[in-house]
Design a protein around this nucleic acid. Structure first.
Lengths: 353, 353
DNA sequence: GTTGGCTCCAGAAACGTTTACGATTTCGTA
DNA sequence: TACGAAATCGTAAACGTTTCTGGAGCCAAC
């Protein structure tokens, strides 16, 4: 009869399974000598406590879920974005033996339903949710159930929950000011087609920034598109389709990947970025080598991940003492990296490559 | 005293928990009338079986793990790549109530150790591993432990395990032939710095393709770089640093994102793609709008995901009957999409934008 | 009227772990 | 010597579920 797991370990060492467990979990009442023996034997046979058994008994899984939706069309941020954020999150979690897994919601399943399923199953101790919608039922749900969570991205639905978001207001203000100082008056911006919150926040801030500089707002300069390369590309064609004197002479973009499509689209329609149109965008591995060099907002995604993790742990009773941050609701700022894409001095629009 | 989970449901319905469980799991010996009552009550209170309890009892979790490493520098493929593959995988898994989660190995942790930990914990029923190395200990480990798995990418370590990989041989053959037909003789290719297997496979096939066309192999035309935008960018500068008559006049690239860096790098060094150097690359959302349009290899990542999932299930006793595929070890082909990036007719190299 | 088979369900065991509790030993001190 | 505290460990319960076993009830057939 084959013993399994901790029982086998206990038998081999001639101690009880209780002692083995206490030894492995660093509990106080176990002789240091036996603890050493246990640890060595465990390492030797590669014993790791079974997830199900442990979770069932402890009532917690040691797993934090990062919920995201698969399929490219939907996600506004690139994947590089997430991979870097993950890495930051994990360096914090690793300190507490917490594991990060990405909970992947199929594009065929409703995100709300998926999340309820995951929570009801007790799959994770806490959740990080991204791609927050303007009104996001997940927030209410999690708050009501008292599941620790943090949202990456603000939302109109406010449950007093912690969130982190990029400083879109700051980007709007800096971007608009910078272009206006260079003489631009017609500044285009992007707004997403769906109800992700960032679009509204950014467009609002954009309008305020314009007003602050006494420039009147033209709704035609808000370009609705998908938040991906395709969307950026489409915007270029939308611009080209406008009467020349109504086109934007500058553009501010906060999305990681749209600048790629916008750049190439602008080349195609004969309105080269940095020459015919000033572009300010967001730095990313993909956008980093654009020619001419993109004047862009940059932030450390790894640091964002670290802050995300720490802010989440701050709301979890077991870990809060190490992170006395309260309920974090914070905008993370971005640095402006000077490039040449906004070097075009203002003048009447001219067509041609 | 608060009843939880299935017990509460059973009490509410005045049946035993066993009956509830059987009703929910579609077991035969339960009255259809009571089954209906159970299902309705479960839906009403949003009951979902606890993951830990179920996994502990059943010995299987219903979770399939897709193992990947976080941090951008390491991953050769972009995140869009994975998000699309995931989506395909999930459409298959959904048919069997299986859940896909991404197991994220921190860049600070050894991938082998991470995987052993995950397996020992019994976290997932099966694994999909990506970023396979030329010699990959994970393969041996999983095969020895009899854990169902499939590798995305070939490896030298062969455990008779299933794998799927892109047809690098095909891309090398088609890409090289195409450029040679246009008169090119000096064709550059990329090889990764680390020991991912794809590099070796591709370079091998590249050499064979050259030989088949009677073109002698020049090792200087194999450019070692990181498999990301930065690497592509660096290659452009490496090319520019060569004596003009030793430079490649064409380039074949199979990586999703490197063409971005290469394109922009080539522009910077005054060797514009499609004009000074012919480039054949790989299609991707990011590369899709490059100017001039990239002549590229395309495949459906979603279909790749579907095939990956089906091939994995084919090796799992419970599901094999639905997927009589045997042990799949297969190259998936890519279509060539005509663009203008390889339109440059062969001539002596000229500098200048 | 007994038997056998069928349908449906209750009861209990089992999965692997953690932990509360109690038992044993040791040791210092009255 | 005796007693209490401290150290160490074994025992068993508990977590929520699935599934095995058996039993109650019913009907048909002999």
């Amino acid at each position: 009869m084959e013993m399994t797991g901790i029982r086998r370990l206990a038998q081999e060492l001639n101690v009880s399974i209780g002692t083995v467990s206490r030894a492995l979990n660093g509990k106080p009442d176990v002789n240091e000598e036996t603890r050493k023996r246990v640890l060595e034997a465990a390492a030797a046979m590669g014993y790791v406590a079974n997830q199900a058994g442990r979770a069932l008994r402890k009532g917690s899984t040691g797993v934090i879920g990062f919920m995201m939706q698969t399929g490219h069309e939907i996600t506004g941020e690139g994947d590089v974005f997430f991979m870097s954020v993950f890495d930051g999150v994990q360096t914090v979690f690793a300190r507490h033996q917490l594991d990060l897994v990405a909970l992947l919601c199929s594009s065929e399943e409703d995100p709300d339903a998926y999340m309820q399923r995951v929570v009801a199953r007790g799959f994770a101790d806490a959740l990080i949710i991204s791609a927050t919608k303007r009104e996001d039922h997940r927030i209410d749900f999690l708050a009501k159930r008292n599941i620790p969570f943090i949202a990456l991205g603000r939302s109109k639905t406010d449950a007093g929950h912690p969130w982190l978001d990029l400083d879109f207001e700051g980007m709007a203000e800096i971007g608009v000011s910078r272009l206006i100082e260079k003489g631009h008056r017609r500044i285009g911006v992007f707004a997403p087609l769906d109800d992700t919150n960032l679009g509204f926040v950014f467009v609002d801030a954009y309008q305020k920034a314009l007003a602050r500089h006494g420039v009147t707002f033209d709704p035609d300069l808000v370009f609705r598109a998908h938040p991906n390369e395709r969307g950026g590309h489409a915007i270029a064609y939308a611009i080209a389709a406008m009467p020349a004197d109504r086109r934007p002479t500058g553009f501010v973009l906060t999305n990681e990947v749209m600048s790629l499509g916008l750049y190439n689209g602008l080349y195609e329609v004969g309105l080269p970025p940095g020459r015919a149109i000033a572009v300010i965008g967001r730095d990313s591995p993909q956008a980093h080598f654009l020619v001419p060099k993109l004047t862009s907002f940059r932030l450390s995604l790894r640091d964002l991940g670290i802050e995300l993790a720490e802010s989440l742990l701050a709301t979890m009773p077991l870990y809060a003492e190490h992170y006395p941050l309260g309920i974090v609701r914070k905008l993370v700022g971005l640095d402006l990296i000077e490039g040449e894409s906004d070097a075009v001095p203002f003048r009447e629009m001219t067509l041609g490559a």
